[in-house]
């Protein structure tokens, strides 16, 4: 079997239980950054740092969604034929931030509702001769409210 490798290293982990995004947290002010991007805290009111690696909440509330029906340009690994996909913006309560992700394969976007619970999953994005390349996606959970 081919190995599963992330499309980009270091952005999520599957090592400890359910998959989680990996960000940076400021030890002084608690601000969270995803991607971590830089080693220091970007809060101008804080001189904290360096950032600690931190897993992000694995559930959040649906802030908005859309889909993409035409193949994006590279570096997106669009297959042939192109397979359309959904994209969700999900609000994480604890981090007070919005994180984008593709919608899990098979999501019916016609049934999504604002504010519904979404759960982080890891799925293949594409496959080549060497590996299955994986990325995080958002899967619809139970409908709230």
């Amino acid at each position: 079997m081919k190995p599963r490798v992330p499309v980009v290293d270091g952005l999520f982990t599957e090592d400890a239980g359910p998959p989680a995004l990996l960000g940076g947290r400021c030890p002084r002010c608690g601000s969270v950054f995803f991607p971590k991007q830089w080693s220091f805290c970007r809060n101008p009111h804080c001189d904290g740092g360096p950032l600690d690696d931190t897993p992000l909440s694995t559930r959040g509330r649906l802030w908005s969604w859309t889909d993409n029906r035409y193949a994006p340009p590279p570096p997106y690994p669009a297959g042939d034929p192109f397979e359309p996909y959904g994209v969700a913006a999900v609000e994480l309560d604890a981090e007070q931030m919005i994180v984008l992700g593709q919608l899990a394969r098979g999501t019916d976007i016609g049934r999504l509702q604002l504010g519904q619970e979404m759960e982080l999953v890891v799925e293949p994005l594409f496959e080549d001769d060497d590996a299955v390349h994986t990325v995080w996606k958002w899967r619809a959970g139970s409908v709230t409210g």
């Binding site: 002010c29 608690g30 601000s31 009111h45 919005i98 984008l100």
Partner: peptide, 10 residues
């Protein structure tokens, strides 16, 4: 951006 800033620290 693929994520916003966090509102936690400010």
């Amino acid at each position: 951006d693929i994520a916003t800033d966090s509102g936690v620290g400010a």
